[in-house]
C-alpha cells in the first residue's frame, strides 16, 4: 500500500494519461488485488494459475479510470468494490456457462450490466456498499481496540487537543506501526513498548506514557491500513511523516 498522498498523485497523473504512473499503481496494488480476490472467492489463488487474479487486475485498471475523489470514497475501497463486482460477474458467467451450455445471454447481460453501472443505480449501489463497509470497518476497529482494552471514550480523553501535540504522538504511532518487531510486541502483549518507542521517536517517556492509548489506537490504523481502508485514508498523518 502506498501512502495516501503519493497514491493520490499517481492516480491523478495516471488518469491524465501517464502510463508509467499507472504501471506503478498496479504494481503497488498487486498484493492488494490478490487479497481482495481471495476474499471474494474464498480460496487461495496463484498468479500463474487463476483467471480471477487477471480479472482483478483489469478491474483495478478500470478503477483507476473511474475513480473520482468527489465521491468521498478512498481509492482502495473503490478499487476493492470494482474488483469484487467484476469477480462476481465473472463467477456468474462461469456458472451460466456450466449450467446453460449453448444459448448465450452473456453479451446482453454484460451490456446490461455496464449500462446499469454507468447509471445512477451504480452510484446508489456504490453508496450503499461503502456505507455498509464503513460501518463494518468501524465495528472491526472497535472490537480490535476492545481486545486491547481501549474504548473510544478513552481516546477522546487521551487525544491531545493541541494540533502540535497530536502530531508528535501521531509521529510516534507511525514509527511504531512501521516497526514490525515493536508492533508485534504490542499486539501480542497488549502493552506499548514505551521505552523502545521513546528511543525510536526521540520523544519524552512521559509524553508517550500519557498518550499511550492514543498511540496504540492510531498505530493500529496505520499498520492494518488495508483492513481499515476508510479510516486509514481519512485520518491524515502530519505532513512530514506522510512523505516517508
Amino acid at each position: 500500500m502506498l501512502p495516501v498522498n503519493i497514491m493520490e498523485e499517481k492516480l491523478a497523473s495516471a488518469q491524465s494519461g501517464d502510463s508509467q504512473a499507472r504501471e506503478d499503481l498496479i504494481a503497488a496494488y498487486r498484493s492488494f488485488v490478490m487479497r481482495a480476490v481471495v476474499k471474494v472467492c474464498g480460496r487461495g489463488m496463484e498468479w500463474s494459475r487463476d483467471d480471477e487474479l487477471s480479472i482483478g487486475l483489469i478491474a483495478l485498471n478500470e478503477a483507476i479510470d473511474r475513480f473520482d475523489d468527489q465521491r468521498g470514497v478512498p481509492f482502495p475501497a473503490f478499487a476493492r468494490l470494482i474488483i469484487k463486482s467484476r469477480i462476481m460477474d465473472y463467477l456468474r458467467q462461469q456458472s451460466r456457462h456450466n449450467n446453460l451450455s449453448g444459448v448465450s445471454l452473456d453479451d446482453f447481460d454484460g451490456q446490461n450490466l455496464s449500462f446499469i453501472e454507468s447509471s445512477q443505480a451504480w452510484d446508489l449501489y456504490l453508496q450503499q456498499e461503502t456505507e455498509r463497509e464503513r460501518e463494518e470497518e468501524i465495528g472491526r476497529y472497535k472490537k480490535l481496540l476492545n481486545d486491547l482494552e481501549i474504548c473510544f471514550d478513552d481516546l477522546v480523553k487521551a487525544s491531545p487537543k493541541h494540533r502540535d501535540a497530536r502530531a508528535t504522538l501521531l509521529r510516534a504511532s507511525k514509527l511504531l506501526s512501521d516497526e514490525r518487531h515493536l508492533f508485534s510486541q504490542l499486539m501480542s502483549t497488549g502493552k506499548l513498548p514505551v521505552m523502545a518507542l521513546s528511543r525510536l521517536a526521540g520523544i519524552n517517556v512521559k509524553t508517550i506514557e500519557r498518550g499511550r492509548k492514543y498511540i496504540i489506537a492510531t498505530s493500529i490504523i496505520w499498520h492494518f491500513c488495508e483492513d481499515f481502508l476508510y479510516l486509514c485514508s481519512f485520518v491524515k498523518l502530519p505532513e512530514k511523516e506522510a512523505r516517508n
Binding site: 464503513r134 460501518e135 471514550d153 481516546l155 487525544s159 487537543k161 494540533r163 492510531t218 485520518v235 491524515k236
Partner: peptide, 16 residues
C-alpha cells in the same frame, strides 16, 4: 487530523 472528540448527536448518524 487525528483528534478524537465527543459531540452532541445531531441527526441520524451511523458509525463510519
Amino acid at each position: 487530523d487525528g483528534d478524537f472528540r465527543q459531540l452532541e448527536l445531531q441527526g441520524n448518524y451511523r458509525p463510519g
